[in-house]
Amino acid sequence: MSSSYKGCVFPEGLLYDLEYHVWVKFEGEVAVVGATAPGQAYAGEIIFIKIKDKGTTLERGAIAATVESAKYMGPMRTPLSGTITEVNEEVKNQPSLVNQAPYDNWVFKISPTKLDSERGLLLDTRSASEKYRSIIDEWGIQCG
């Protein structure tokens, strides 16, 4: 069952990185990554997103994409070290899809190389939704 707070939903079955405000879903050996609901709400309506190319190798915390809205400019960092295997062309062409449905519109897929040491840094839905409450209050945002 998903959790929510101030309209920000946290679906079950995903893992969350509260340092970088991204969600992760594993599809076999590949991790699918997108923006969390509070992350996209904080940014506002995204008007441009630049995603690193397929084949780019990144360490955890490196910039995988740059997000631009009318009032925000910031990086989307990878929660896992690895190599980007795919970028979402639909999101590149229409970045506001991330605002409309952040969990349906992934941004990039990455083949992790340090999963054993980095998986523990990701939170499950229950932990993430609890910890996100104070962040949402601090940011003064409302999703949806």
Binding site: K50, I63, M73, G74, P75
Partner: peptide, 11 residues
């Protein structure tokens, strides 16, 4: 400021 933020957010 905005363009500097952009350059920094691109790494």
């Amino acid at each position: 400021f905005y363009y500097a933020a952009a350059a920094a957010s691109m790494g």
